[in-house]
Simulated scan of single mutants.
Amino acid sequence: MSILVTGFDPGRDGVNASAALVTSLRDDLPADLLPFRSQLHFAILPLSSRELGGAVLAQVAASRPRFCVFTGQARGRHKVNLERLATNLKDFESPDVEGGQPRGELIEPAGPAACWSTLPGQQQMVDRLNDRGIPAALSNHGGNHLCNQLLYQMLYWARQSGSGVRCGLVHIPPLPVQAQTQWPETPVMPLAMTRAALTCILLVLAAQLAEEITP
């Protein structure tokens, strides 16, 4: 069993806070996570509504995870947010990398209106982050763009397939460089802090994974 951690490709913008975070951990794993290196799998997913589902399922097939931690950047957020649920709705305010911009479309026509995150211990994770001086909170709305689509598709797939994969979404603020070059009004969070936040989250999951593996 393993943990799959994903971010989104930078696309045309050239920088995506989630891609920077996941790539940073993949290439320079913090010391606390080194004992779990073999169980951690990192992937960057496309900014394409059409390709997203197939891309993440390919990563799931390759890594056979017990837990999926999806990360995405959220302009305007000033905390690390763990999403409680995903809604069955694509309503893109801006187009994806292919120019697709669905408005008011269902993600899964036969699916429920919403699916609860199945990532365990989210309140515990939030409490740990705040105790470490990292602003964090649970969130009740993950937007209606690609992050929400990813979480909903995987929660629905896990339910339908009976795979037992447990999934959650972590939204992070943009990086300081993005405020300098793209969104001067947005709150930001340094990469060092988002690295510390995701490390903390992964340690909680790794400990649970170890308990499940131990006979």
Results as ranks from 00 to 15, higher is better:
Met1Phe: 07
Met1Thr: 09
Thr6Met: 04
Gly7Met: 01
Phe8Leu: 04
Gly11Tyr: 11
Val15Ala: 06
Thr23Asp: 05
Leu25Trp: 01
Arg26Val: 02
Pro30Asp: 07
Leu34His: 03
Ser38Asn: 14
Ser38Ala: 12
Leu45Met: 15
Ser48Asn: 10
Ser49Trp: 07
Arg50Ala: 15
Arg50Phe: 10
Glu51Arg: 15
Gly53Phe: 15
Gly54Val: 14
Ala55Arg: 11
Leu57Val: 07
Ser63Glu: 06
Pro65Met: 08
Pro65Trp: 13
Pro65Lys: 07
Pro65Ser: 12
Cys68Asp: 06
Thr71Leu: 07
Ala74Tyr: 08
Arg75Gln: 12
Gly76His: 06
Lys79Ile: 01
Asn81Ile: 00
Asn81Thr: 11
Leu82Ser: 04
Glu83His: 14
Glu83Ala: 09
Leu85Phe: 12
Leu85Tyr: 09
Leu85Val: 14
Phe92Cys: 05
Val97Asn: 13
Val97Phe: 07
Glu98Phe: 10
Gly99His: 09
Gly100Pro: 00
Gln101His: 07
Glu108Trp: 05
Pro109Met: 02
Trp116Ile: 08
Trp116Asn: 11
Thr118Ile: 10
Leu119Ala: 11
Leu119Asn: 11
Leu119Thr: 09
Pro120Thr: 13
Met125Thr: 05
Leu129Cys: 00
Arg132Ser: 09
Gly133Phe: 02
Ala137Asn: 00
Ser139Cys: 13
Asn140Trp: 05
Asn140Pro: 00
Asn144Ser: 14
His145Leu: 11
Asn148Asp: 14
Leu150Phe: 05
Tyr152Lys: 01
Met154Tyr: 05
Trp157Asn: 02
Gln160Tyr: 04
Gln160Gly: 11
Arg166Ala: 14
Leu169Cys: 08
Leu169Trp: 08
Pro173Ser: 08
Pro173Ala: 00
Pro174Gly: 14
Pro174Asn: 09
Pro174Asp: 11
Pro176Asp: 08
Pro176Ala: 10
Val177Lys: 01
Trp183Val: 09
Val188Tyr: 10
Met189Ser: 03
Pro190Trp: 11
Leu191Phe: 08
Arg195Asp: 01
Ala196Glu: 03
Ala197Leu: 02
Ala197Trp: 01
Leu198Asp: 01
Cys200Ala: 12
Leu202Val: 09
Leu205Phe: 10
Leu205Thr: 03
Ala206Tyr: 03
Gln208Met: 12
Gln208Ser: 06
Glu211Ala: 14
Ile213His: 12
